[in-house]
Computed example of a mutant assay.
Amino acid sequence: MLPRIEVAERPGVGLDGAVRPSEDVVVVLPNAVVLLDGATALDPALPSGGWFASRLAGELAGRLVGYPDADIADLLAAAIKAVARDHGLVPGESPSSTVALLRWNDRVVEGLVLADSPIVAFTDGGPAPLVDGRLAAMPRGVGYRDRLASGAGYGDDHLVALRDAATSMSRRRNIDGGFWVAEADPDAAHYAERATWPRAGLTTVLMASDGVSCGVDTYGVFADWTAVRDLAMAQGPEAVLDRVRAAENEDPNGTRWPRPKPHDDQAMVVADFTR
Rank of each mutant, 00 (worst) to 15 (best):
V25A: 00
N253Q: 14
R85G: 13
D164P: 00
G88S: 13
D217E: 15
S117G: 03
A223Y: 03
R199S: 12
A234Y: 04
P91E: 12
V99Q: 05
T255V: 15
P260N: 05
Y144I: 02
G141K: 01
G236M: 03
V244Y: 09
P198A: 08
A121Q: 07
A234L: 09
S97N: 03
G201T: 12
E183D: 15
P129Q: 03
W51E: 02
V270T: 09
C214D: 15
P30F: 08
V33S: 01
P252E: 08
V269R: 09
D16A: 05
P68G: 08
P127N: 10
V160K: 06
D146G: 01
G143N: 04
A39K: 05
P47G: 07
D264H: 11
L159D: 11
R275I: 11
A149F: 07
T40W: 01
A247I: 10
R134E: 14
R256W: 07
V65W: 06
M169D: 15
E183C: 11
D176T: 15
I72Q: 11
E250M: 04
Y67T: 06
A70K: 08
V65N: 01
L241S: 05
V65M: 11
G88Q: 13
H263M: 14
R145P: 02
A77F: 09
R20E: 09
L135F: 11
G211S: 07
W257G: 04
V109P: 07
R171M: 14
D132E: 06
D24F: 10
A61N: 05
G220P: 09
W197C: 03
A41I: 01
V65G: 02
E23M: 04
F222R: 00
P139N: 12
A192Y: 11
S96T: 12
G153S: 06
